[in-house]
Write a protein that binds this DNA or RNA. Structure first.
Lengths: 212, 212
DNA sequence: TGTTAATGACTGACTGGTCAGTCACACTAT
DNA sequence: ATAGTGTGACTGACCAGTCAGTCATTAACA
């Protein structure tokens, strides 16, 4: 039908539409992060985008929907960065190290997404399970198999429960991500080194270890 | 002057005043935690307290001031619980274990304060340094000396930087506190056991440790 | 003891300001 | 001409904080 072609030339293509929406999402991410959900009003976002407020609503159903789209976009980017970094090597311990490094680096380079995680939990706590944990759970299945394999091969201690181990690692990087963001961090490289050293080898001295 | 005595009997004592304020703070803590800062409007808080809205403003300067008082109260209670638990023993490793256990237990039993930490960061991010970190920094001085002493005595590894060690421990318990709160946790006891086991002894198997 | 006055804790309807979302109209490209 | 895209003034809901007024209690006095 000619109508389809006509429409295609008259209308912005689906491609164009999603590009504009994406532009809105990325600008909103930064503004939400900078001002907080409540103080980031739609008029302000419109001004930043050099567009009228009504235009935003052509691409977005509501402020809430927009915000959640921002969080989701950020988390998917994060997951991508971590996965890519992990796949760069086959050595299992190096893989763990790279994944952690990529995770912390991502949030260090895109601090707006740390803010969005916090905002989401603070404001939509009764409406939505935190997106961060959705992504975390999805990735966990594979990491669990990965760690279990290392235990089976005798490379990790067999007297530690895999799930508790995963929890501990997860909690450590999660806490580190937040404090890095809140307090800043001079040397992210040294920090990661120490962190990995401790979880791999423990903080006890050799003497103390033998004594126990 | 007789007037002073008269006034003393008419007026509520300073004691009474601070008790009422405390009642407001504690009720507000739970309501802020349950509904979030924005959805917890002062009318609702007044209803919960079975008091008129105006009355609250006799004890509190503003919603913001009230909220910050809630956070501060919570953190001071937390610090108290941790300090008391740590002082129950002289064995240094047991002291670390007890402090961590008290910390996690406190937030598990008073989940409203986890919410307040999040809300504070989300809503007052540009106005106030998080109260949590104020308290954390205050306590850090003593923990630093404590860990340094253990290193000097050869009970902890001397090749790890004290500050990085403190950071790692802090990040781990911080992250654990949050995820416990968000996801709930079946066995807080087993979790703490694993966590301590890992930071003390590491997750590498003996074989792998020797190989490195 | 009974009556009136003073006190101050408490009340809740009201105000002023904010802001998400709407819609009638304008513009543009074909 | 007309369909699609953009506009921004407007509306209605919401809520922090206020303040003129109420009421219970105690003091003062006859």
């Amino acid at each position: 039908m000619a109508k389809v072609q006509t429409k295609a030339s008259l209308t912005q293509s689906a491609e164009q539409r999603s590009q504009r929406r994406q532009k809105i999402v990325e600008t909103a991410s930064k503004l939400f992060a900078q001002l907080g959900y409540a103080d980031c009003d739609m008029d302000r976002l419109a001004a930043k985008l050099r567009v009228a407020k009504g235009t935003i609503y052509l691409y977005v159903a509501s402020k809430e929907e927009l915000f959640l789209a921002c969080v989701d976009w950020g988390m998917s980017q994060m997951q991508l960065a971590v996965r890519e970094a992990a796949e760069m090597t086959d050595d299992p311990f190096e893989r763990i190290a790279r994944a952690i490094r990529a995770y912390l680096t991502f949030f260090s380079e895109h601090p707006q997404y740390v803010e969005l995680i916090i905002q989401e939990r603070a404001i939509f706590k009764n409406r939505k399970r935190p997106t961060y944990f959705e992504y975390r759970d999805a990735a966990r299945v594979q990491w669990r198999a990965f760690y279990q394999d290392l235990i089976n091969k005798g490379r990790l201690r067999s007297d530690i429960n895999v799930d508790s181990l995963l929890d501990t690692m997860g909690n450590l990087v999660y806490g580190t991500m937040f404090t890095n963001h809140f307090l800043g961090n001079r040397s992210i490289e040294e920090q990661q080194q120490t962190m990995l050293d401790i979880v791999f080898r423990g903080m006890l001295s050799d003497r103390e270890r033998r004594a126990k």
